[in-house]
Simulated assay, not measured.
Amino acid sequence: MAGCRLVRMTELRKTVESFWATAEARDWDTFADTLAEDVVYTLPQTRERISGRERYVEFNREYPGDWHLRIERIVAEPEQVVTWTHFTVGLEEMYAISFFTGDEHGRISAITDFWPEPYEPPAGRDHLVERY
């Protein structure tokens, strides 16, 4: 049983790694192969949801700007993978945290993206922190 869970964790992790690599390469056919046909993509900050592989691929294909990405960290469990990703769009930099759920075929069935905005910390804690 534990061996089966490890295989599923490894499979989904590899699928998510391929998802990001093919997105960066703009290889939309291979990108689509990482997704379940009924994939659901959710953006909580904007309260948007995209249902279905074709619509989600088109959403990414049409995304404006010359964006690029780099995976900072991947954490994998048998049915879920979480990534911390660094994006650039021109001179703008941003980070995303993405939660991926897999289906029984090793494809991505659900994605939830969080795009936290950077902000200046509150005053009064300079003596406790180091800014980077």
Rank of each mutant, 00 (worst) to 15 (best):
M1C: 00
M1P: 09
M1G: 11
A2P: 09
A2F: 06
C4G: 07
R5Q: 12
L6I: 02
V7R: 02
V7S: 05
R8D: 13
R8P: 05
L12C: 00
L12I: 02
R13Y: 07
V16T: 04
V16G: 11
E17I: 06
E17L: 05
S18L: 15
F19I: 06
A21I: 03
A21V: 01
T22F: 14
T22E: 13
A23H: 07
A23V: 05
A25K: 03
R26G: 10
D27E: 13
D27M: 08
D29G: 09
T30G: 04
F31E: 03
A32L: 03
D33F: 00
D33V: 05
D33K: 06
L35E: 03
A36V: 05
A36T: 08
E37N: 14
V39W: 02
V40F: 03
V40P: 02
Y41L: 09
T42P: 03
P44D: 03
P44Q: 00
T46G: 09
R47K: 15
E48Y: 02
E48R: 04
R49D: 00
R49K: 13
R49I: 09
I50T: 15
I50A: 01
S51C: 05
G52P: 06
G52N: 08
E54P: 02
R55V: 05
R55G: 05
Y56F: 15
Y56Q: 01
Y56V: 01
V57F: 07
E58Y: 03
N60A: 10
E62K: 14
E62L: 14
Y63I: 10
Y63W: 11
P64F: 04
D66W: 02
D66P: 05
D66R: 12
W67E: 06
H68W: 04
H68V: 07
R70F: 06
R70K: 14
I71M: 11
I71W: 07
E72F: 08
E72T: 03
R73F: 09
R73C: 06
I74R: 04
V75E: 08
A76S: 08
A76H: 01
A76E: 00
A76R: 01
P78S: 05
E79F: 07
E79H: 11
V81T: 11
V81N: 04
V81K: 06
V82I: 15
V82E: 03
T83R: 04
W84I: 14
W84A: 13
H86D: 05
H86P: 02
H86M: 06
F87T: 00
F87P: 03
T88M: 10
T88D: 01
L91H: 08
L91M: 08
L91S: 15
E92H: 14
Y95P: 01
A96F: 11
A96V: 14
I97H: 04
F99Q: 00
F100E: 00
T101N: 08
G102M: 07
G102L: 00
G102W: 02
D103S: 10
E104D: 08
H105E: 10
G106K: 00
I108V: 15
T112N: 08
F114I: 12
F114S: 10
W115H: 13
W115M: 11
P116C: 10
P116H: 07
E117A: 13
E117I: 14
P118Y: 03
P118F: 01
Y119Q: 12
P121W: 04
P121Y: 05
A123R: 11
G124K: 08
H127D: 12
L128A: 12
L128R: 11
V129Q: 08
V129K: 11
V129A: 07
V129I: 14
R131T: 13
Y132L: 13
